[in-house]
Write a protein that binds this DNA or RNA. Structure first.
Length: 281
DNA sequence: TTGTGTTTTATTGCCTCC
DNA sequence: GGAGGCAATAAAACACAA
């Protein structure tokens, strides 16, 4: 990208917090003035904060290349980032003074830190979505199996009914064929009805929405939500607890990176209930 | 030691907001 | 128009296996 690079000059910083001044604009204006005749001399990174102001060192090692911040500096920046991930000018100046850095460096650090946070957030969002998808898929597969089972039950009972009808036609039964058929039919209805009730009770749902083994879950528009709320909440609760962790929120905006998109999609589908579970607090 | 992959620091250009 | 944010990118610093 760029042909000439600019390097932080700690000696200049030491002398006067640098000619760049406080603002990024000043930096941007002034940066073209800086030359980059680099030396190949390098120094690892500061081993302590005091090294920053080790004049003797800079006298012999100028100019400097890019170097890492000390663990202490990083720690303080992290703490500051945790409380607020955006940087007002005053705080930037204060932090810079406190850490012996240029305000520009502090600003850049925050910018990069926000980018890292965002990347992590996307990873977390992906994990959440994937777990959610897996749970739904498994639920769907269970329902499909159950559906198959019930269908075969219906087929076998229907066959029995037909057999009985046949028997009756041949006069081997005391009951009339129509009566028997109707009786058996009622039995089938009873079984199906009971199954339905049990299904509702056991799943806690408002009834299975999956009525056919198509390519995926199909919504039967009964006026209910597509996903039974308690079932879904339970699922997401588990997912949520499992995935979020590792990295601090570090911001007042610590919600799912996808939440806006999902809510937007939700609106688009005229869904009445907010998909609150996409958002962690 | 060296090659390679990852992380961190910094720059550039574009965009938005006031 | 200036200030500041972000995405994309460069390049130094670092880690680590071979």
């Amino acid at each position: 990208m760029e042909s000439g690079r600019l390097f932080f000059d700690p000696s200049a910083c030491h002398a006067n917090m640098l000619f760049l001044g406080n603002g990024d604009a000043a930096f941007r204006g002034a940066r073209s003035m800086m030359s980059i005749e680099e030396t190949s001399k390098r120094r690892p990174f500061f081993s302590s904060h005091d090294d920053l102001f080790d004049e003797a060192y800079y006298d012999e090692q100028l100019p400097e290349k890019k170097r890492r911040l000390t663990p202490d500096q990083v720690h303080m920046l992290e703490k500051s980032f945790e409380t607020e991930n955006k940087l007002e000018p005053e705080r930037k100046t204060q932090l810079a003074k406190k850490l012996g850095l240029q305000p520009r460096q502090v600003a850049v650090w925050f910018q990069n830190r926000r980018a890292r946070w965002k990347t992590k957030q996307l990873e977390r969002d992906y994990d959440v979505l994937k777990s959610s998808y897996d749970a739904l898929l498994s639920n769907y597969e269970t329902l499909v199996k159950e559906n198959e089972k019930l269908k075969s039950e219906v087929v076998s009972l229907t066959e029995k009914v037909e057999d009985k009808k046949e028997e009756n036609k041949e006069g081997k039964s005391g009951k009339k064929g129509d009566e028997l058929g109707s009786e058996m039919g009622n039995n089938v209805s009873d079984i199906l009805f009971r199954n339905k009730i049990e299904d509702r009770l056991s799943s806690g749902s408002g009834g299975s929405a999956v009525v056919d083994d198509q390519d995926g879950p199909q919504l039967v528009d009964s006026g209910d939500s597509y996903f039974p709320s308690d079932e879904y909440t339970g699922c997401m609760g588990a997912v949520d607890g499992g995935v979020q962790s590792e990295e601090e929120d570090g911001s007042d905006d610590s919600r799912s990176y996808f939440s806006d998109v999902l809510v937007a999609a939700d609106d688009h589908h005229q869904h009445e209930e907010p998909m609150g579970w996409w958002v962690w607090s």
